[in-house]
Design a protein around this nucleic acid. Structure first.
Lengths: 191, 191
DNA sequence: CGCGACGTTGATTTGCCTCAACGATTGTGG
DNA sequence: CCACAATCGTTGAGGCAAATCAACGTCGCG
């Protein structure tokens, strides 16, 4: 909880009133490795803030293949943005890759909160701006880069992640198979 | 200009004061087919609203290949979101695919405008939410679908576009070659 | 008309996937 | 504390979807 306050305090001062209000709408949750918080076919519209640990959101096809949408560590937000912001029913799951601690906020409460404290809407809007840029970059690399180039960019952009996340999940984020990633890594070591 | 006002009026009432303020920060521009508004290596931080016609944003690699990020028609926003929201220098160009009319707003003015009229920040925030969901969907289809499946989804989701946009640009949006798209289309007609 | 842009088609190549097998590591229950 | 299973990464062989290379038809336009 304090972690989220600190996160906001980087942008704006937080009064005691706001602090209490926030505490009222936040659920704290501890997760063990492998635990799933949001699963496909649910309809929960929730925002998840990572306090500690590492989570991942992914899509699972009928034939069992997983495609990773996002990883999230300390101070990142993660959720099923398709369910959150459209009427589509969920096809996304979110699981914890480590022991972790998260804060969960219901989207309807977030909306009310914005109305009451518009300064948070500004923070969120700016957040979305950064995110949009990042998503555009991701799409560009999916369109333009080879498997090797995508991996190189990944370890450059997400050095922190590379250590915690199993390779087969990195592969599923890059849109390649674990086997291909293994061969790419082998080549890299050579040089 | 009135088109943008109508667009906003769908969400909130617009006072004469706001209307005049808006007129003060908007540049109207007419574009001919093939004309480029933002080109790579520029640093302009601008938002573009499409009044009529069709535009496209794309990335061009060193070896001359183009990768389409976005198409935009009437009432859509388009810009170089990477330049707009990060400090990266631009690698994106935006060109007009038809005769078209656009409204251009400088980002610094948009920021001031939000401060003065917070209701617009709400509109924009919601806009971003929808967009985030759409970008996540796009990433999912790039990760999970075959060339044929991506094309099927495209013509389902963007029926309007399919008629105006040349096939080689649709191919560059889907991450496939024009030749492959041609073969996929041939197969489709058969059935 | 003649040129350039676009789409198509065929032949060939290739990057990556699939299938399969096998260590290494970790966790678990007897 | 060890046997065993499960998970993960690696490696090899073979296959395939899509890319590449190349040629040609068509259409619109200066």
């Amino acid at each position: 909880m304090n972690e989220l306050l600190d996160y906001f305090k980087k942008n704006i001062p937080i009064s005691l009133e706001i602090e209490n209000k926030l505490k009222g709408i936040i659920k704290e949750k501890r997760l063990i490795k492998g635990e799933t918080i949001l699963s496909d076919n649910s309809v929960k519209k929730e925002h998840v803030f990572v306090v500690s640990g590492c989570l991942r959101s992914f899509y699972k096809t009928e034939n069992g293949k997983e495609h990773t949408i996002q990883f999230a560590i300390k101070n990142w937000w993660i959720s099923d943005y398709i369910t959150l912001y459209t009427d589509n029913k969920s096809v996304i799951s979110i699981e914890s890759l480590t022991h972790s601690k998260v804060l969960i906020i219901d989207n309807s409460k977030v909306e009310k909160f914005y109305k009451e404290f518009p300064q948070f809407e500004t923070i969120q809007r700016k957040n979305f701006e950064k995110r949009t840029a990042a998503l555009h970059k991701r799409i560009l690399s999916l369109l333009a880069l080879s498997a090797t180039e995508k991996y190189n960019q990944f370890i450059k952009d997400y050095t922190d992640f590379e250590k915690i996340i199993p390779n087969y999940q990195i592969a599923s984020y890059l849109g390649i198979t674990p086997q291909s990633l293994s061969r790419i890594r082998k080549e890299r070591i050579k040089t």
